[in-house]
Nucleic acid binder design. Structure first.
Lengths: 212, 212
DNA sequence: TTATACAAACAGACGTGAATGTATATTTTC
DNA sequence: GAAAATATACATTCACGTCTGTTTGTATAA
């Protein structure tokens, strides 16, 4: 069988991406061969090489299906912190955690991205891109926290930059931990986790200058 | 050159581990070949195969040099929470963060372990071992938080298990983020970060049962 | 409208390089 | 002299990229 219609071709592309997602999750990116993906999708490497350049290209496409929509939220909030930045940040954070806990695809991609990014120099570009993404995410958080401080929602001595790191680490850590183990009810506890963290920020101690 | 004395042999073993640590960090575990390691250590694959079984074996040895001592701290604390569990946990957490920020070797290993664990079924055992380690860590934290609740250092409605997850996610997230980017002064801010998080726990809101 | 030319969408085969594990050769210490 | 501690050589596997073949949708023109 060969020359399909446009829609059929797009279908195989999706099948390949789905298959890649599964393979990556099960065996890791580096250990997944292009033949694995092709076979899992019910095709051959010919189809793979028609639709994608190499494994890194597939990986990028797999991630893009999930990550991009999630970043939009933070972007919107950072663009216009509004009158209650902390409140919206809270909603966003809870939403992200719940999204992870509910959507299988999101789980797969994060499980892959979290502990399994390795493989040749082809991935260098992707790694750099991810660093940039991480950086943008931190910047947006910083903007939001800065707005929160200036609006009096957080004490004046709170450093927006460090706080952004803390928030990102906390949410990212929760996601990672849950994806790896699934040993607590992320969905149910998401509001408490976020609120407790924000409570800490609202009552944050004045940073010490002394050591130890 | 061949047959060395016992000390010389041990020296090459260490050289191989050092070289592996560097290679793993620079190119990732999966993309590092045994020949890379051997060459970087100034030896050949013969030496590698004499001292180690395969790449997974090397990886394990590389990790063991660093991770084990850090786990001892938490173990001691969990075994005897004492009269001020939260205070000791605070010190431990700060200590771990500072250890990371000061010790190159710790940084290397965590950078490797964090984002680059992939490579064949040889690593299955290691992955399982890491999951167990993670689990033990959570258990110990749970014990500590439970003690803190019973001693009145934390509100009664605080769930030790969920709190342990949160703490672990926070600290782990900070370590990971810092290792990847080095874009803030972890050492200087460690106390404030830990204290702010603990402040959140002490003033933690009562968990809601409603949705959204 | 239909014949034809072309290109899309794959399948399959092939060559290549590289990494792995093993087997053997070589010294040197004990 | 026996075995430890390496180097070297070798066989095998295996994934990748490329190339070619095949079939069919589709545009174009007569």
């Amino acid at each position: 069988m060969v020359r399909r219609t446009k829609e059929e071709a797009e279908a195989t592309r999706v099948q390949l991406l789905d298959a890649a997602e599964r393979c990556f999750r099960e065996k890791g990116v580096a250990s997944t061969t292009l033949d694995d993906i092709a076979k899992a999708a019910g095709h051959t490497r010919g189809a793979v090489y028609w639709h994608f350049e190499n494994k890194a290209d597939i990986f990028e496409a797999v991630c893009e299906r999930v990550v991009t929509p999630m970043q939009a939220m933070l972007g919107d909030l950072a663009a216009d912190p509004g009158s209650d930045p902390l409140g919206y940040l809270r909603k966003d954070a809870i939403h992200v955690l719940r999204m992870l806990s509910e959507c299988e695809r999101v789980q797969s991609v994060f499980e892959i991205k979290f502990c399994k990014l390795d493989g040749g120099p082809d991935f260098d570009r992707l790694r750099r891109a991810e660093l940039e993404t991480h950086g943008r995410c931190l910047s947006m958080l910083e903007v939001i926290f800065d707005a929160a401080v200036r609006r009096g929602q957080l004490p004046a001595h709170v450093d927006p930059k460090v706080t952004a790191e803390a928030m990102h680490a906390f949410i990212g850590g929760l996601m990672r931990s849950w994806v790896e183990r699934h040993d607590f009810d992320l969905r149910a506890h998401a509001p408490w986790l976020v609120d407790t963290f924000l409570t800490g920020l609202r009552n944050a101690p004045v940073p010490e200058t002394s050591a130890d």
